[in-house]
Amino acid sequence: MEILSSRTILRPSEYERTLSFYRDTLGLAIAREYPGGTVFFAGQGLIEVAAHGGTGEGGFRGAIWLQVRDLTAAQTELVLAGVKIAREARQEPWGLHEMWIADPDGTPIVMVQIPEDHPIRRDSRPPSA
């Protein structure tokens, strides 16, 4: 399967504290902000701090985000390899096409296809003169 990009998603119990740590203490540059989160550049990868936080002990605190070119093909490939699909591929209210699986230790892995018209794929800079 072809992976186009990846990121680590954190869902902290205290968003502002974690945001400040990555932004101010570590000095990571912001890749993009959206209502409910901030994505930082982290070398060759990205770290996303989501404001809809973790639920504490034993709750969902993070995931691995893998962007693929064709989510339907990825799902078929994973099923044929015997991987259990935790959540079938579908379009989310925020416009991304997502499917969820987990690694052997239960770490959530979000497989994502970004539609052509999604804001992540559009250049938000003003046109140059």
Rank of each mutant, 00 (worst) to 15 (best):
Q75M: 12
M1K: 00
G36W: 02
G106K: 06
R90V: 06
A74K: 08
T55M: 11
S128T: 09
L19Q: 04
I109V: 14
Q75G: 04
A73W: 02
I109W: 07
A42S: 10
E48H: 11
Y15M: 07
I114F: 01
L10A: 00
G95F: 05
A89S: 13
V68L: 02
D117A: 08
P108W: 11
Q113R: 08
G58I: 02
G37D: 03
R23G: 01
E116Q: 05
I120T: 06
A86W: 04
P104N: 14
A86F: 04
A73C: 01
P126H: 01
V112P: 02
E33F: 03
L71W: 02
M99I: 08
R125A: 10
I109M: 06
A129Y: 11
R125C: 03
R69S: 14
I9M: 15
T25Q: 13
H118N: 06
I30G: 06
D123M: 04
R90I: 02
S124M: 11
K84S: 10
L46M: 11
Q75F: 07
A50M: 11
A86E: 15
L96M: 08
A63Y: 12
A29G: 08
Y34S: 06
L71E: 03
A102Y: 06
S5M: 10
E2K: 09
A50W: 04
T38F: 00
G62V: 03
A129I: 13
T38E: 00
P93G: 06
G82P: 04
G37M: 03
I64K: 02
S20D: 14
P12L: 00
M111W: 10
R90S: 08
E98W: 05
Q113M: 13
L4E: 12
L46W: 09
M111F: 13
Q75V: 11
G27M: 09
A51I: 00
W100N: 08
A86G: 04
E33N: 03
T72D: 09
I30K: 06
I9L: 15
T38V: 13
L80A: 13
A42K: 05
L46F: 12
D70E: 10
V39P: 00
R61S: 15
F40P: 05
V79E: 13
G45W: 13
I9F: 15
R121M: 13
R32T: 14
F60N: 07
P12G: 02
E116Y: 00
P93K: 04
T55R: 13
E88W: 03
E48T: 13
T8D: 04
F41H: 12
S13W: 04
V68H: 03
V110A: 12
I120K: 10
F41K: 11
D123K: 02
P35V: 04
I101W: 14
F60V: 11
V112R: 03
A81D: 13
V68E: 00
P104K: 15
G106M: 07
R61H: 14
I120Q: 10
L19K: 11
S6P: 01
M99S: 07
A29C: 03
S124E: 15
D117F: 00
E88D: 10
G53Q: 03
R90P: 03
T55E: 15
G37E: 01
L10I: 10
E116S: 07
L46D: 07
D117L: 05
D103G: 09
A81K: 14
G27V: 05
T76V: 09
P12I: 09
